[in-house]
Amino acid sequence: MHATQPSPGALPAQCPETPRRRGRPRSEVAATAVLDAAYRLSATEGLRGATIQAIAAASGVSKMTIYKWWEGRLQLLIDAYMRQATLLLPLSEAMPPADAIHAHAQQYLVALHGDLGRVQLAVLAECMAETGNSEVFVARYLRMRRKLGVSVIRRGQRGGSIASQRPAEALYDQIYGTIFYRFQFGLGGLDKAFVANLVATTFSA
């Protein structure tokens, strides 16, 4: 949900929990190729096809180099997902806050029905398989995105475009948690009308 959009080749920032390993600085061009390959393979072939070996072959970057830059496949897939989510899902600072969240939630819905949704499923499956929980996904991706969305909601509450004065975190979770839950478990009724009504009712007094 970055308000200031990165250039198409920009890479997600390293999280505090995942310091960069020592060694030669990585090539941003090569790192972008790895992230793009990981995302593409996850979207088209799922976890079975998105192996480090396949990602190395598709990107032209050696497995040894990939393992120098990422701790493992899980961290790589999360970064690949985060890069695309940042590019596909801008959160406007120019629009009124309530309108910005409306637009962003609709963009998220559309993205979930495409490659981003397939990669999200793959990433969360890898989280569970590797660690038994989603803590790495939260630390490396979700916490930052949630913080940005919450800040927009708070601004709307202060300015009066969002009537509800419940905690901004609760409003954010009600909107995006509901969308995530319905998509993750394949529940019906997740369409543009549902999302529009969800945001409107969540923001009402």
Rank of each mutant, 00 (worst) to 15 (best):
A103K: 08
V119A: 06
A13M: 13
A10G: 15
Y108M: 12
A31F: 08
T65M: 03
R158A: 15
K63D: 13
V61Q: 01
N197W: 10
S161P: 00
A163Y: 07
Y67R: 13
L88G: 02
A170Q: 12
C15F: 11
M1Y: 07
G189V: 08
R118N: 09
A37E: 08
T131Y: 10
E93M: 07
V29D: 12
T201F: 10
S62Q: 06
H102V: 09
A170K: 03
Q107T: 04
A129D: 14
G72M: 02
L116T: 06
A94S: 15
A94R: 10
R40W: 03
S161C: 14
L190F: 09
L124V: 02
L88A: 15
S27M: 12
G23A: 08
T4H: 15
G160R: 01
G9Y: 07
M144R: 15
A125N: 08
A105K: 02
V150R: 11
G117H: 07
T32V: 09
A168T: 10
P19V: 12
I55G: 02
A80T: 02
R73E: 07
W70F: 14
G159Y: 05
Q120C: 03
A57G: 11
R40N: 05
L124G: 01
R26Q: 12
D115L: 02
A94P: 01
T65Q: 11
A38Q: 04
R166H: 08
A170L: 12
A100R: 01
G189Y: 08
T44Q: 15
E93I: 03
L74I: 03
L91W: 04
A31H: 02
T178K: 03
L124Y: 06
N133A: 10
A125E: 14
P16K: 09
A50R: 01
D173A: 14
T86R: 11
C127R: 01
D79E: 12
V138G: 00
R143K: 15
Q174Y: 02
S27I: 03
E28P: 02
T201I: 06
S151V: 00
Q106A: 13
T4K: 12
R48W: 02
G177N: 12
L41A: 05
T86A: 12
Q75M: 00
P167N: 09
G114P: 04
Q165P: 00
P97D: 04
A205V: 00
